[in-house]
């Protein structure tokens, strides 16, 4: 095979691999989102106590940090991904119960759900169709995320409502940026070749956007 043919063959193989990664990621993402919604519904139905949110988040992050890296390249990784998303969905139960108890609660939850979907589909579609490289955003986004985490830590004790709203707005902005960043990494083959890890990255962005959009809509539109 001559050099131009070899280059062309490798380019085709790379494109096929990228398309397969994108297809597998979005297929798994849709399944995990459905599973997460199911576990959230179960949690609401069981009327789980507020502690569930903290324990669910803690458990999910333990799985993400300690278990998933070790299993991402094996069949058990799929089970771990569903365990993570199931736990995170289950942890939403107490939160959803609080918002659903508001006078316009179902409307708020529905709008947060639909709004999250529109944001994700819009940003993903933009990144996939324009094929722009958003890898330059990585440093900015992670720095912003660290600042938000520190602000959230401070606000646990300061309990300033305006700061809580600002944190939620910042999280939505940063997570939207991460959707562009993660999608771009898949498209441009920038180090993300594992669809399990790619799925979890995008899932966490969607999860955070939903939770914080729910908070903003609940505060601004709730019956106080």
């Amino acid at each position: 095979m001559s050099t131009p043919e070899l280059v062309r063959t490798r380019a085709i193989e790379s494109t096929l691999a990228t398309n397969k990664l994108i297809r597998n990621t979005y297929t798994l993402l849709s399944m995990t989102l459905l599973f997460s919604a199911l576990t959230a519904g179960v949690s609401v139905w069981l009327r789980m106590p507020p502690m569930t949110y903290l324990l669910g988040l803690g458990g999910a992050f333990l799985l993400i940090w300690l278990v998933l890296p070790r299993t991402a390249n094996s069949a058990s990784g799929l089970g771990v991904v569903f365990a993570i998303t199931g736990l995170l969905g289950f942890s939403l139960g107490p939160l959803l119960s609080v918002y659903l108890s508001l006078a316009n609660g179902p409307q708020i939850v529905g709008m947060a759900f639909a709004g999250t979907g529109v944001i994700f589909l819009g940003l993903s579609g933009y990144a996939l169709t324009t094929r722009k490289d958003f890898s330059f955003m990585g440093g900015f986004l992670i720095t912003g995320f660290l600042v938000v985490l520190m602000a959230a830590l401070a606000n646990i004790f300061l309990q300033i409502p305006a700061l809580a709203l600002a944190i939620s707005a910042a999280v939505i902005f940063i997570m939207s940026g991460f959707i562009l960043y993660d999608t771009s990494r898949m498209v441009h083959d920038r180090g993300e070749t594992n669809y399990l890890l790619a799925t979890i990255s995008i899932y966490l962005s969607i999860f955070n956007i939903f939770v914080h959009l729910l908070h903003i809509l609940g505060v601004m539109g709730g019956d106080d």
Partner: peptide, 16 residues
């Protein structure tokens, strides 16, 4: 696109 997301969130808030 991020500015559009912010505008969309403002729209959602106005609709609630």
């Amino acid at each position: 696109p991020l500015a559009l997301v912010a505008a969309f969130v403002v729209l959602l808030v106005m609709m609630v």
